[in-house]
Amino acid sequence: MEQLIIALGWVGVFAPVALGAVGSAIGCSVAGQAACGAMLDVESGYGKFVGVSAMPSSQVIYGIVIMFTLSALGVSEATSAGLFGIGLLTGVALMYSAIYQGQAVAASINASKNKPEVFGLSIAPAAIVEGFAVFAFVFALVLGQAIV
């Protein structure tokens, strides 16, 4: 039983990176596909499409920071439950935010391709989604300190 609890603790420590990486991969892939499509239809401005398509990669970076913070607390029988709860749920939040951010970025690329003047405004929905990922990131760090 003790080993299972420790294992769950490690799952919690690594979940933000693993799930964040899954989400970022899907999100960047979706946004990247949209960027590639837009390049076929426009004559210039490719750089901004490629640049904005990398937006969903931030979630895996948040995951890495959370992983180091949680692992620094030490995985023991006393901390495992807290690590598992905070780590897993943060990972899920990061994964979904990255996937949906990728879709928001794809929509932004499609809109700004047809109407370049709305580029800045069209990124707003993706930026709002980023905000939710930041909430999960910051409060995971804050709450993580209460584990020990």
Binding site: A34, M39, D41, A106
Partner: peptide, 13 residues
């Protein structure tokens, strides 16, 4: 799933 690439490659009507 090439829909993202395809649909963004098509000009707006």
């Amino acid at each position: 799933n090439a829909y993202y690439t395809l649909l963004t490659s098509l000009p707006h009507i």
